[in-house]
């Protein structure tokens, strides 16, 4: 089997488990929603701060939700020794990485659509028509990067105790540049400054490419050690 078909196999497996258990959609999605509400309570809706800081709040919410999605992605491998089976399956480590990351990307994209709707409604944000494509492209690239970083750190701690508390400590500093670039790109897109938005967007693209490359190389050896 090729790398792509192996990756699709793993992604389908993870998505099938998610469709049956509905953990991400029944628990992570409401979590993201309540975080959006909490930001509004914390920053006071009357002061007009929310539309200004909305891009940053959106990406912070996505990142926090992604932590739960990543933990879930590797929790299913920890049950009933599934990780051993995955290791013995003979599938390429790079394909397993791509498959697991793709499943997280799909879940996060659905989450982002719902959260973005929440941001438009609750935070009164308006995205100019010509900026929608740029915003969508940056969102996809940033989601790929978050999923890649999460998948790498997820497998890094998969076989050890206290992984639930370690994943945020490892992932959050690593996603800092991404959070910065994606938030700035959204901010400039909302202000209709497309050229600056795309400059930040290109940085998101570079980070996503680096993260995927690191994941493809490192996932196999890390899976052996987990």
């Amino acid at each position: 089997m090729s790398l792509a078909s192996d990756a699709v196999l793993i992604a389908k497996k993870d998505m099938r488990i998610e469709m049956r258990s509905r953990i991400v959609f029944a628990q992570v999605l409401p979590f993201g929603g309540i975080v959006l509400l909490l930001f509004a309570f914390a920053l006071d809706t009357d002061r007009g701060v929310l539309p200004i800081v909305a891009p940053g709040l959106f990406w912070v919410t996505v990142t926090l939700s992604a932590l739960l999605a990543v933990s879930r992605s590797f929790a299913i491998e920890a049950e009933h020794g599934a990780l051993y089976a995955l290791r013995l399956s003979g599938l390429d480590g790079a394909a397993i990485f791509l498959g697991k990351a793709a499943a997280i990307v799909l879940q996060l994209l659905v989450l982002e659509v719902v959260l973005a709707t929440g941001v438009f409604v609750l935070y009164d944000v308006h995205v100019p028509g010509e900026a929608v494509l740029a915003v969508a492209s940056v969102a996809v690239a940033a989601t790929v990067a978050i999923a890649a970083i999460g998948t790498v750190y997820g497998v890094l701690v998969a076989g050890i105790r206290a992984r639930e508390t370690l994943v945020p400590l490892l992932v959050l500093p690593a996603v800092t540049p991404l959070l910065l670039a994606a938030s700035r790109s959204f901010e400039y897109a909302i202000d209709n400054d497309l050229s600056t938005s795309l400059r930040w967007g290109s940085l998101v693209g570079v980070i996503a490419s680096v993260c995927v490359m690191v994941g493809v190389v490192a996932f196999g050896p890390l899976l052996e050690e987990s």
């Binding site: 890094l156 500093p173 690593a174 540049p177 910065l180 680096v210 890390l222 050690e225």
Partner: peptide, 23 residues
């Protein structure tokens, strides 16, 4: 754990220029 730690250290080091550049 040594091999896992070594890979984690390299990943962290790769992140250093990315953090510096973006900031």
């Amino acid at each position: 754990s040594q091999r896992r730690n070594a890979i984690a250290a390299l990943i962290a080091f790769i992140d250093v220029p990315i953090v510096h550049f973006s900031v």
